[in-house]
Structure formats: C-alpha cells, structure tokens
Computed example of a mutant assay.
Amino acid sequence: MKKICLIGGMLQGFEVCYLAQKAGYEVHLIDKKKQVLIKDLVEHFYCFDITIYPSKLIDISKNVDAIIPVTENFDTIKYLHEIVSNIHCPILFDFDSYYISRDKAVSKSFFAKINVPTPINRPYSPPYFVKPITGSSSVGAFMTYDKKKIPNLDTDFIVEEYIEGNVISLEVIGNGNTYYVGKETKVHINESNDCYMISTFSNNKTFRKIAHNIASNLKLKGIMDVEAIQNKRNLKIIEIDARFPSQTPIVVYNSSGINLLEMLLEAFSLEEITNFECISTENQCTLEHLMKGKNNSLVHIGEQKLKNALTCKLYHADETIEIFEYMGSNKIYTLISKGVNEKSLCANRECGLNMLKYN
C-alpha cells in the first residue's frame, strides 16, 4: 500500500483524500491546527507546525512514498521549498511554477510572452472584473460597471474586461518533459464568484492545446489547474494554479476513471507520461455543495463556506451517489452524483437530493 503525507487539512486535502481512498492509499496528515476539515478522513494525523518542528516532518518523510502540500499558506510553502533537500521522499509540487501562478500579474505577463489569450487589461468601457493579485480567484473578486471605483484600487488588484460565458477547467500533469492533459469540467459560479457546483464538459481541442502549451513552457513538474472563459466567439484563459486543485478532480475521476493523484505519483517516476491525448467518455458527474434551509429546502452554497466547518464525514455512498456531511453550525453537504448518461445522472441526482431533503 502506498502512503502519502498531506501538509494542510482543508479543501485541497479533501480532494486528495477522496482520490487516495479510491486508489487504496494510506493518508498521513500534518496541520498546525488541532481541528481541521479532513482530520477524520485520514489514517494518521500529526498536529504541529513544520516551520517550527521541521525534524518531525523529516522523520515522517522516511516512512511515506510522497509528500503533497495542500495548503494556501505561502510561508509554509516557501519554508518547505527551503528544506526540500532534507526530505527523504518526493515532494509532489512544482515550486517554481507555483510562484508564477500564485501572482496573477506575473502569470498574465507570462501568458503574453507565449501568446496565450487572456481578458483585456484595464478595458476602456464596463463591465469590469476586479480580482486580487494573489489568493483564490473567488475571494475578493467582483464585477462592476462603475469606472469611478477602478482608480481607487491599489496595486493588489487586477482589472480586466468582464466576459460572459462558461467557466471551464483542465488539469495538466507534467514531469518536466512530457505532459498529460486531463478532462474538461465546467465550474458553476454564484453571485459572489464562488464555485457551488462542478459538472462534466465536452472536449475542447483549443483549450487542451493552450493548457499543454502553458505546461510545456513552464516545464511543469507536478499538477496545474487551468481555468478559462468560453463563449461563442472565443476562449480566454483567466488563471492557472500550480497546485492540487479542489472539486474538479473528483468529477474527472467519476466521469473518466482517471485518478489524477495516481497520475501525479506516476509522473515523478516515469520518463514519459502516456495517454496525453484527449479522454473520450460518455459518463457524467456533478459535484455540488448544499445547505439545508427552512422546510427542508436545499440551497446551493459556495465552496468557501465549507472552510467554516469543523470536520466532515461520509454520509452515504453507493454506485450512483456519494454524500459528505460537514459538521458545524449549519447542515452542509457535498453531493456527488454519477450516471452513464445525462438521463441517468439527473435521476440519480434527484434521488440524492430527496435523500437530503427528507432525512
């Protein structure tokens, strides 16, 4: 049995735990907080700060097959980069690509050099889309028609044209030489620009070529998420994140059978990654976050709301639906629905919704 160690116990960690369970891996978790979201989903939990007790991390690295940072704490990632030579197993993370991707101004400059299409900077007319230079794109991002708000923003924000269309996502895994492009998914966004649902999406050759081009120019050695806006006229890249993403890999797994965690481990041990070409599948999957309201009603909530939960557990699982329940002040669930086609997906999803409504 392979053993992996995660640094960070929140949303990205949930994703890796899910895929690790499907692959039959044992998961070890390190987090400096005693109570973290995925604590009850892992086999071993260690509560300490790696920047204060690096020797503990080094000892753990002797007994696992790989370490995966799944934290958004930049100081933790920088420190891990500093001590990487002392670690006794691979760290499945591309630090150089991450430093480019976490700064949206730097990454946009990189896109321009390799002719990647992106939204126009500082457009003359509204609507404008404003987003922080660092951090998750949903936190602090907003759309406005008021040009007067734009000059008051400091250098911590990027102002772009607002483009209507589907938000679509792709994962790319690389070993620095060859690159595997995963399966497209659609990202459903609420009014707060937070993702409340992920669904399968049709293959897009243009998007796949752009994603591969970005990875090859980065010489990516790890996993990267690429997001774009697609409408009838064009496709534009809005951001990349060179880290293990949340939400989308679960939908990729259940619609295509491709476990991106397994692929990531293989990428660090193979000279060439096979199956680069587009995945063809008719299987369907949706992942959505729901909160129970008045009269047993269910409402969608954004992913960021899950950060307030104390822990989570598996509520129900079968071949058609899986439900995770989050412990906290409100009843919050993640519903994963599966089907061999759109019709069966809708029927299975309805069963899952009814299970939550009337239980």
Rank of each mutant, 00 (worst) to 15 (best):
K205Y: 06
G328K: 08
G328Q: 09
K78C: 10
F129E: 11
S136L: 04
H88W: 10
V251S: 15
S280V: 15
L310W: 08
D103P: 07
D40W: 07
L41P: 07
E15N: 01
I60R: 09
Y53F: 10
I301F: 11
V130G: 08
K343H: 10
I87F: 14
T206E: 13
I223H: 01
I158C: 01
S199Q: 10
L218E: 06
K357P: 04
L287G: 13
E161L: 12
S125Q: 14
S137E: 06
K357V: 00
K22E: 15
S337L: 08
Y253R: 09
N354P: 02
I150K: 09
S55L: 09
D318H: 06
G13P: 06
G174S: 04
E82F: 00
S280Q: 15
V251L: 15
N259D: 05
M263P: 03
I168Y: 00
G24P: 10
E350Q: 09
I158M: 13
Y98L: 10
V84G: 00
V42R: 04
S125E: 13
E277T: 14
F207A: 06
I279A: 11
I163N: 13
S255G: 14
P119K: 03
A20E: 05
C47R: 01
T51K: 14
L11Y: 04
I7G: 02
L356M: 12
E184Y: 04
K148F: 13
G293L: 00
F157K: 08
L260K: 08
C278H: 10
I7R: 02
E262A: 05
M224W: 09
Y315Q: 02
N341Q: 07
G328N: 11
V340K: 15
V16G: 00
R102Q: 03
L298D: 01
G257E: 09
V181N: 07
Y179A: 07
F201T: 06
L220H: 11
S246R: 06
P69H: 05
K357N: 02
Y315D: 11
S246M: 08
N330Q: 08
L261P: 03
A112Y: 13
L264W: 05
K186L: 15
M143C: 07
C312A: 09
E272Q: 11
